[in-house]
Structure formats: structure tokens, C-alpha cells
Design a protein around this nucleic acid. Structure first.
Lengths: 319, 319
DNA sequence: TTGTAGGCGTTATCAA
DNA sequence: TTGATAACGCCTACAA
């Protein structure tokens, strides 16, 4: 492997000059520049980037923490992050955590060890206090509405979304409304639960805890949801489903079992992914790609900012 | 940031001893070891990993090249790779290429620049010759049946799969068989095309080029497929669909349009993902997670090996 | 069992 | 416009 010293020897200049040429710095004469460039070509030279990292203290690497990449929500967010990273000449290090805290901490430690310049946490399971401790080592950006600590974030207000969707269903006569989520812990689910509770208090409605169905992640979980609903004494007349895929699975499952949508049960999906359009599912549009882009930009722009992204209800045929 | 020198001073030992303690090397007395450990604790010390990288010439980082991460095929493969990487204490750098050659080359260059120790290419668009040039810089593993150059690979034989599936359909009386793929270029598609051609020659059947439908990636593309089929003068009686998601989309679309499966058209999916089970789709099981794991292991085990993974036809109700 | 010193490949500082 | 030389922080012969 030829290095900068070899080049210097070959071009009969100092390493400094080589470095200048390599990094397009000014103050190099034409002749020397060309001599260096010749040497570069003839040796097929490439920088050892680790030396650059050590010298500069930066890696142009941003970490991305997410529970799993095989879920449309996260893979779309990731796609947005990746797109923006590319435009800014960064690369991504993936931390697939499966919601295991120690893996999240591993990512935080890589920030501390300077292997990554910043960290995007798409969904977390560890405490905010822990994250706060690592803030001193580099920028960390979250995808949730965080007030407790001073970090950047890009998020949608799940409280508002849920409130609005519940209101929408209420106006259409629904009084027994259930909802499906991916996991019952986590900040987003907490806010949804709050909105759900507040809604029921506002209208003095009661609800059954079995109306809250968790572990709904994939298309095929739709079937599970319908099977659960069928076992209930009093079935909900509408379902808020925090993923279009699951909503689509529910729709298909209902067709199989002769359950009519929206007459027997109304469905609202989340995200407005293409599958929702194809299946004519009423859904709440969440601009995941844009959110991903913004998350990335926040990690490299050192000022701290919090951005709430607006969402939109798309009315189709399942309500 | 405290470094190894500071620790040495604090513990009143040499940097070598500190390094020994930090890396669990033998030949350190209890007292000195404890003194070092104390210093580590009191300073909250963490290695600067870039210095380690530079010094060792390794990064414990493996690159993964894939066109997009929001597709079940690749996200499952990625999941397998990530699982195994974790077990072996490696991290992954993601290269989302969108099938753009320059991005693939960027990944190859990171190998050359030593930012990554190895590279897994899940799907490529650049020539094998180009890849061959970079082989000197580190292990590269492909997920296709490659004979032209000497690299490791884990793959399924798309030729065999297609041949078997076509044969299966033939035995059940199908004579007009079409197929759907993600993209028409690429090694896998080439092998499928070959199998398709050979099959038709074997049985002296003719086929229409419109029976080959490409750009089928997502669930929602199923609708597009059916719309195309409906426009054909002579519609195929069976369809090989290289993704369970698309197959599911086709099934749903057919239900909408009163097309009966398998009577009007038979469907075989690929991968055997949960959605195929839920929808009772006959499919070919491809163990993507295992393939991912093996791809990873091949990149860190320096011997070159080529592993063909067996597949299995799962008979359900769409044929 | 311990420590000295050189090396890893760049970049940055400063003097010329 | 150029070049010595000192960082950057760690690892590892080699010597003691």
C-alpha cells in the first residue's frame, strides 16, 4: 500500500505538499501539483481514511438506531435518512436493536469512542437520562416529541393525530373505538394512550382495555387483530391502526370473513403508503422520507432544533 | 478527552501497561491492573477507536450494498446479516445504491480506503470485472451464483428454482405461464430468463414476451400486474411471482375483480414470508435470514467459498 | 512483569 | 510557495 510519504518521494516534494494537492489546498505550483498527481495515478494511490479520521477527529459516519429494518415505517424513515446522507457525503452505520437496551447503548458508546460523528435514534427503549449523558460526545437526534432534555428532534405529534382521528370517527357516529399499535411501551404509544384517554373523558365514554391491541407490525398481523375482535363481547365499530400494512391485512382478513368495511368496522391506517391507496384505505399521511431527511440534517447542523411535522387525513373508503 | 497517556500518568505506569490492561493481555500485576482500572473509572475513559483502527489496520466494519432497504427481500437479508454481525462484534455500513453504479463503486472504494474490512454485495449492477479489481483490498461476498471470478458467495439457483416451478405448473396442465420480476437486468433475472427459455424449448412451447412483467416490487404492484394481464389477448394461466408481497397484491386484486385463483390464474410466490402463509399462497421458500448470516460469515472467514442454499416449494392454495 | 520507542498515515502549525 | 515536524491515540516489538 503506497502512502503519502511514498508519493512525496516519487514527486520529489514534501508530504505537506502532497497533502495540499490531495486536499485541493491553494499555494502549490503547477509543476509540483502535476508531479504529485502523476505519482497518484501511477501508484493507484488511495488515502487511508482511518488516518484521516484520527487526524481530524471526525469520521463522516452517522449512526442510525432502529429496532428493525424490515418494517415499512422504519425502512422508509431510513430511506430518507440515507438519501440525505448521500447528498451530504456521509455514510450510515446501522444499529438494529430489536429494542434491546444494551444495543442502544452500544451505539451511544460508538459516539463516545468517536467512530461516528452523530447519532439518529428512530425509536428508543432506554431512558432519556442515559441519552443525556452521551450528549457531550456529539449530536444525538430523536424522532419523538421530547421535552425533558435538550436534544434535536423531528417528529409528528401522536397526541394530536390520535385526537383528531378519534374526533373524526366520533363525528361519524363511532362510540366504540379501538386501536392497534406496534408495541405498548415507548413515548409515541404513551402519547397515543393519553389522547385516547382524554378523548374518552371529554365525551364521557368508557372503553375496554381489550380495545387496545398491540404487537401489530406486519400485514399478516391484520388477521390476528380480526380474530381478537371477533372474540370480544362488544366489538369496536372502528379501529385506528398505526400502520397501513396492518390496516391492509385487516381489510383482507375482513373480506375473507365476510365482515363489511366500513359498515361492520371502520378502519383508519397510518402513513399513507402506496398499499393504502391501492386498497382504498382511509389513512393519516406521515411524510416519513422527509422526516428522515430532516433527522439527518439536524445531526450535522449543530444547533439544536425541534421540528414537528404536519400530517394530513386522507379520506378514502374504509370509514 | 483523556487518553492512554493520561491514564498511564495517573496510574503511575507506562502506556504499554495501560494498553495491556485495556486489552486483557496477560503479564500485568494485580496492583498495577487495579491502578489502571481505577484511573479508567475515575476519568470515564473510552478508547478513541479511530486510533485503534489506524494502528491495527482494521475497523470491524463490514459494508453492505443493496439497492433499497424498504423491500422485504433485502430487509430480511439485511436482518440476517445484522444478526450475525452482532454476534461477531462487527458493525455494518449501509450502502443504499438504488442500483446506481457510482454508489456501488463508492462502497468498493471504502474497502480500498480501509474504512471497512469487507463488503457484502446483495445485488449489483456493476460488472464483475470491476469487483475483481477491488478484491485485492479485502473480502467481497456476493449473493449470486458467480463463476467468472473467484469470490465467495451465498445464493440460491434461480435457474433451478424457475425450472422446478415451471415443471410443477406444467405437470398441473399449465401451458401459458408468465412471470413477474423486480428488474429485468441483473444476474438473477438472467438465469430466470434462461430457465424460462429452456423450459419452453424442452416442451416446444411458444411464449409471448409480454408474459414477462418487470418492476414488480411491492404489494401494490400486484394490481398493475393484473391490469396488464387483462389487456393481453391470450392471458397466461399461471404466474411465477418473485416476491410474496407482489403475489399477495395479485391475489387481493383478483378478488376485487372477480378473477378466481387458481382457476382463472394460478400464482406461485417467492420467499415464503408470513404474508404468504396468511394468504394461503403457494410459494418457494428461500431462507433469507440464513443466507444473510452466511454472507456475513463468509466475509470474515477469509477462505473463499461458494454456497448454494436449498429451497423448498410450499404447496398451498394458489395453484 | 514492565517500560521504551517506533510505527500506523494524515493533517496542522509554524518557520523559512 | 514550500517543507520540517509535531500532533492524533493506540499497539507492539524489543529490551530489560
Amino acid at each position: 500500500m503506497t502512502n503519502i510519504k511514498d508519493l512525496a518521494k516519487m514527486a520529489r516534494v514534501s508530504v505537506t505538499t502532497v497533502s495540499r494537492v490531495l486536499n485541493n489546498h491553494p499555494y502549490v505550483s503547477k509543476e509540483k501539483r502535476e508531479a504529485v498527481l502523476d505519482a497518484v495515478k501511477s501508484t493507484n494511490y488511495q488515502k487511508n481514511i482511518n488516518a484521516v479520521h484520527l487526524s481530524k477527529g471526525k469520521t463522516k459516519l452517522i449512526g442510525v438506531v432502529l429496532p428493525f429494518s424490515d418494517h415499512p415505517y422504519f425502512s422508509l424513515l431510513l430511506k430518507g435518512i440515507a438519501k440525505q446522507a448521500l447528498e451530504n457525503n456521509y455514510h450510515l452505520v446501522l444499529f438494529q436493536t430489536d429494542y434491546m437496551q444494551n444495543k442502544e447503548i452500544e451505539a451511544l458508546e460508538m459516539l463516545q469512542k468517536k467512530q461516528i460523528d452523530g447519532l439518529i435514534i428512530c425509536s428508543r427503549t432506554c431512558d432519556l437520562q442515559i441519552i443525556e449523558e452521551y450528549l457531550q460526545f456529539g449530536p444525538i437526534v430523536l424522532s419523538e416529541d421530547v421535552k425533558e432534555i435538550n436534544v434535536s428532534s423531528t417528529f409528528v405529534s401522536h397526541y394530536k393525530i390520535f385526537s383528531n382521528a378519534l374526533e373524526y370517527l366520533y363525528q361519524r357516529g363511532h362510540r366504540k373505538i379501538g386501536y392497534c399499535i406496534g408495541r405498548s411501551t415507548g413515548a409515541n404509544s404513551y402519547n397515543r394512550g393519553l389522547a385516547y384517554k382524554d378523548f374518552h373523558e371529554k365525551y364521557s365514554l368508557s372503553y375496554n382495555s381489550e380495545y387496545i391491541i398491540d404487537k401489530c407490525l406486519y400485514f399478516e398481523d391484520g388477521e390476528k387483530v380480526i380474530n381478537q375482535v371477533k372474540l370480544m363481547n362488544i366489538a369496536p365499530s372502528a379501529l385506528l391502526v398505526t400502520s397501513d400494512q396492518v390496516a391492509a391485512g385487516i381489510v383482507v382478513s375482513c373480506q375473507k370473513q365476510q365482515i363489511s368495511i366500513p359498515d361492520d368496522i371502520a378502519i383508519i391506517g397510518f402513513d399513507n403508503q402506496p398499499i393504502a391507496k391501492m386498497m382504498d384505505i382511509t389513512t393519516i399521511e406521515i411524510p416519513l422520507m422527509e422526516m428522515g431527511r430532516n433527522l439527518f440534517l439536524q445531526t450535522i447542523n449543530s444547533e439544536i432544533s425541534n421540528k414537528e411535522v404536519p400530517v394530513k387525513l386522507i379520506e378514502r373508503k374504509t370509514v
